[in-house]
Structure formats: C-alpha cells, structure tokens
Amino acid sequence: MPVVGPVRRTAARLAALMVVTLALGVGAVPAGAASAAPLAKAPDTDHEGGTAKLRDQLDAASKGWLDARTALARSTKRQQELATQLKTIEGELGVRDAKVGEIAVVAYRTGRFGTAAALLSSRDPENFMDRAAALGQVAANEDRAVRGLLETRDQATRTKTALDGEIVEQRKQVLVMAKRKEQAEKALEVAAAEARRAATQRSTSASAGGSGSGGTSTANAKPAPRNSDGSWPSESCSVDDPTPADGCITPRTLHALQQAKAAGFTRYVSCHRSGGSGEHPKGRACDFAAQKGGFGGDATGGDKTYGNNLAAYFIRNADRLAVLYVIWYREIWLPSSGWKSYSGAGGDPSSDHTNHVHLSVY
C-alpha cells in the first residue's frame, strides 16, 4: 500500500506529459504518419536560413524584377498596337492625300473664276440657286477632305510620338530588370562571403547543392488571376491555411498549394508561421517536405528526387504561379537569375533546405 502514492504520482506525471505532448504535436505530423521520424524543427520556428536582411533583399529584388517584366510586356503589347494603328493611319493618309491632290488639280484647271462662270451661265434664278447650292456642297466636301488630311497627319504624328515613348519605356524597364537582377545576386554574394567566414566550424559546403536544376516536370499549373494590365493584384493574408500549420495565407499562395497537389505533390506541407521573418508570417510562403513523414533529415534517394521534381514544377510554372523564389538543397532559384548557391544557412536540414522545398509567391 505505501507504493500507491508514488504510483499515482507517476501516472499523473505521465498523463500530464501526454497532454503537453499532444498539445504541442497536434497537426505536426500528417495522418497516417505517426510512425514517421519527427520534424527536425517545429514549424513555428524561423529556420529558413540566411538572414532577415537577405530575405528582404531577395523579396524586393524579385518583386521589382517581376514588376518590370510585367511593365515591359505591357509596353511591348502597346508598341505592337501602336505600330498596327500607325500602319492603318498611314494608309488612310495616302488616300486622303490623293483626294486632296485631285481637288488641287481640278482647282488649277478651272481657275479662280470657274465658280463665278458656272453661276453666271445660269439662265434663270432657280437654276442659279441650284448651281450655287451644288457649288457650296462641292466646296464643303473639299474643305472636309483637306481638314481630314490634316487631322490624319496629326494623328500619325501623335502615334509616332507614342510609339517612340513606348520604346523609351521598354529600355527603362530592361534597365530596371538588370538592376534588380544585380541586386539579388549581390545580396547572395555578400551572404556567401559572410557564410564562408562564419562556417569554418562545419564541414557542410553550400557548393554541395546543385540538385535544384536536376528535377523534371511536365505538368502545367492553372494561371493565378491577374489584373487586366497583366500585373499581380495586391493580396493580404486573408484565407485559412489548410495545412497543419494553421493561420492564414494569401489566395495566390493557396492557389499554388492546390496546383502542386493537383500535379501529384501531396506530401506534408506547412505554410503560415506566426514568428520570424520572411514570407511565412505574411502567408506568402509554404514549405513542402521531401519525406512522406514531414521534416526529417537530409532527403536522399526517392525523397530527394521528389524534391527535385517539385522544385522543377514550381520553376516550370513560375510565371503562372507568381513565384518569387524557390529554395532547395542549399540553392535558390530566382526568376531573374536562375539557380544560385544559397549560403548563410545554419548547417541543419531545415535551414539548409535539404529536407523541404521552400516556395515564396508574389
């Protein structure tokens, strides 16, 4: 009987421990994966690698590059429309020019007194008035022809000016794209240099990536909704996050998540994160686990192939899904630069992105 108290206390402690464990672990592992390896880090920790400054720079650079590319496409379309319009105007101008030329020839042949002679040759007042009205109509038609010619010439001039303006706009946007590309690559170079200075204590090298571009994908995603001018509408964290991470995500993030699942990438995903920096707290990013059971160690074999193919899927559909960047296996894919080494990670599978594919959308 003396052992009843300790037994009860032990049972109570075990029960309390189970409650705490369940409270912390609910939603951390998908259904059917209870026996899988536990997550390397809880989803609510900031383990995206790099620094908040680096992620902000990459975010701004990619957004700026995508905005400039949209403006360039819009300007190019406008240029094509203006070129077609100018061709039509020049054709009309040729017709009007010929018509006015004919009028000038007739006026030259009849002379200045042609109108007076036509009126004086009238035999009666009624015939005189008829001829006067007819001549007035001819004069009005000639006047309209001349004014039409002048207006068409002015329209052609305005169209040419607008066309030149679109060419200037295109050159401007190309320069913006180049600067944004340089901004992103410079940020990564600085981060890589800082990582080399700080990472002498670990053996993992950022150059050990090279996996991101090795995947294949032929699936096409349905395009996310755009504005009428081709730009991406502003979105807030306004829809429920359907992943175990809970919280909110943007409609565009939800679209990308749904499209990836429709393409067959159905393993564990975590999107919203309340803490830390980057796009997760904004609902604009998701982490797609390479392993079936969640975020484990470094992905190898079929798990690594899964990650390669998923990264390739997002890149193939980057324009349809408004992809800002993709991070996978110590590399980052930017719409402006392609695959680059992603340094500054923490040397663990989560921050090195060797156990999940990170997706950030506009």
Score class of each variant (00 low, 15 high):
3 V>K: 06
9 R>N: 14
20 V>H: 02
21 T>C: 09
24 L>D: 00
25 G>E: 12
31 A>T: 13
32 G>H: 09
38 P>D: 03
43 P>W: 13
49 G>S: 03
64 G>H: 07
65 W>Y: 15
70 T>Q: 11
75 S>R: 10
77 K>W: 00
79 Q>R: 14
80 Q>H: 10
87 K>H: 12
94 G>Q: 11
98 A>L: 08
100 V>T: 15
107 A>V: 03
107 A>I: 01
109 R>Y: 00
123 R>D: 14
129 M>D: 09
131 R>W: 02
131 R>H: 08
134 A>L: 06
135 L>M: 10
145 A>W: 01
153 R>F: 01
153 R>M: 05
154 D>H: 12
156 A>F: 01
157 T>G: 05
164 D>W: 00
169 E>L: 12
174 V>I: 15
179 K>E: 13
180 R>A: 14
183 Q>W: 03
184 A>E: 09
186 K>S: 14
195 A>S: 14
199 A>F: 07
202 R>G: 05
206 A>V: 15
213 S>T: 14
218 T>Y: 03
219 A>W: 03
220 N>C: 02
220 N>E: 09
222 K>M: 07
224 A>L: 04
229 D>V: 09
234 S>R: 04
235 E>Y: 04
235 E>F: 02
238 S>G: 04
241 D>P: 04
248 C>R: 13
261 K>F: 03
264 G>K: 04
271 C>W: 04
274 S>A: 15
275 G>D: 09
278 G>V: 02
279 E>N: 12
282 K>I: 00
282 K>E: 11
298 D>E: 11
298 D>N: 12
313 Y>F: 15
322 A>T: 12
327 I>L: 12
327 I>G: 04
329 Y>V: 08
337 S>R: 05
347 G>P: 04
361 V>L: 10
